[in-house]
Simulated scan of single mutants.
Amino acid sequence: MASNKEEVKVFGLVESPFVTRVEIALKLKGVEYKYEQEKVGNLSETLKKYNPVYKKVPVFIHNDKPISESLVILEYIDETWKQNPILPSDPSKRALARFWSNFIDDKCSNGARKVCFPLDEKEREKSIEETKEALHFLENELKDKFFGGEDIGFVDIAAVVISFWFSPIQEAFGLKLFTIEEFPKLYNWSQEFNNHPIVKEKLPPRETLLAFYKGRYEEHFGSK
């Protein structure tokens, strides 16, 4: 098993849910790490060197070996530090966890992006419908307190974008994508997850995210 004394770094942005995924996983595992703060629109040359393909956060460094893409990083963390596993031991359940985590990125994160920055109003309406359909699939998939059962796991961590980011995004852009009335199980899950002591410690201030997304709104649509 890897030692906590090994060098671990995370290059990140406060505004990124994908970085927060990595930080939650490391905190769950009890792994100490150094956080390298990047700036939106002005990423460091060091980060670009470590992630020349995508040039984006998060970048995870373990003993000078860089790994990119948050879901890939989560799997690496789980395989390297065996304590407090976040993926199920059963192969079929592991495959399902990977499936739903990729689904969250493909249908929910990308869906919200298309809703916020559509090519036109017709695309926005279509994206709202598709994103809500994706959320309904997750609502039906949620069988326990968490997607991981009684303890938070891989899918819960992947879904932090829904549990915490969707709220300030909705407020900044004047949307109603994710509400307690339409998604009661998923909404209650989000409250449980956000208030989990380890998760709560790693979530950024909501006001910071709201200010960020209001700024994005004004850049794209102009202030009103």
Score class of each variant (00 low, 15 high):
Trp100Lys: 10
Phe221Ala: 01
Leu209Val: 05
Phe154Leu: 07
Asp78Lys: 03
Phe103Asp: 09
Phe11Met: 04
Glu150Cys: 02
Ala25Phe: 11
Ile61Gln: 05
Leu210Ala: 08
Val160Gln: 12
Lys27Leu: 12
Glu75Ser: 01
Ile198Asp: 06
Leu28Gly: 05
Pro204Asp: 10
Glu125Leu: 14
Arg113Gly: 00
Pro91Met: 07
Leu43Asn: 06
Gln37Trp: 05
Val57Cys: 03
Glu139Ile: 00
Ile157Arg: 05
Ile128Phe: 09
Arg216His: 04
Ile104Met: 11
Phe18Glu: 14
Arg206Gly: 01
Glu181Thr: 13
Leu210Ser: 05
Glu130Gln: 13
Gly174Asn: 15
Ile128Tyr: 09
Leu87Gln: 05
Leu203Glu: 01
Glu7Met: 03
Leu28Arg: 13
Ala159Cys: 11
Ser109Asn: 08
Phe178Asn: 00
Asp156Ala: 02
Pro91Ser: 09
Ile24Phe: 06
Asp64Ala: 02
Ser44Phe: 09
Pro197Trp: 13
Ser16Trp: 14
Glu133Ala: 13
Met1Phe: 14
Asp144Met: 13
Ala25Asp: 09
Lys185His: 13
Phe11Cys: 00
Val161His: 11
Lys29Glu: 06
Thr46Glu: 11
Ser44Trp: 08
Gly12Lys: 15
Ala97Gly: 02
Pro184Thr: 08
Thr131Arg: 02
Arg21His: 08
Ile180Met: 11
Ser109Tyr: 09
Ala158Phe: 13
Pro66Glu: 06
Asn140Arg: 13
Glu129His: 07
Ser44Asn: 04
Ser163Met: 00
Glu129Val: 06
Ser190Phe: 12
Lys143Glu: 12
Leu28Asn: 06
Ser101Val: 08
Glu207Thr: 01
Val161Ser: 13
Lys65Ile: 12
Arg124Trp: 07
Ser92Phe: 13
Leu43Tyr: 11
Pro205Val: 00
Gly148Val: 03
Glu192Trp: 07
Arg216Ala: 11
Gly222His: 13
Glu129Ser: 15
Asn4Gln: 04
Cys108Tyr: 01
Glu36Thr: 05
His62Ser: 04
Gly148Tyr: 01
Ile180Ala: 15
Glu130Ser: 12
Leu177His: 09
Asp106Phe: 06
Ser89Ala: 15
Gly215Met: 12
Glu182Asn: 10
Lys145Arg: 12
Phe60His: 11
Pro205Met: 10
Asn63Cys: 06
Lys82Tyr: 03
Ala97Asn: 03
Phe183Cys: 05
Gly222Trp: 14
Lys55Glu: 12
Val40Cys: 03
Leu177Met: 14
Phe212Cys: 10
Phe173Glu: 10
Val59Ala: 07
Gly148Trp: 01
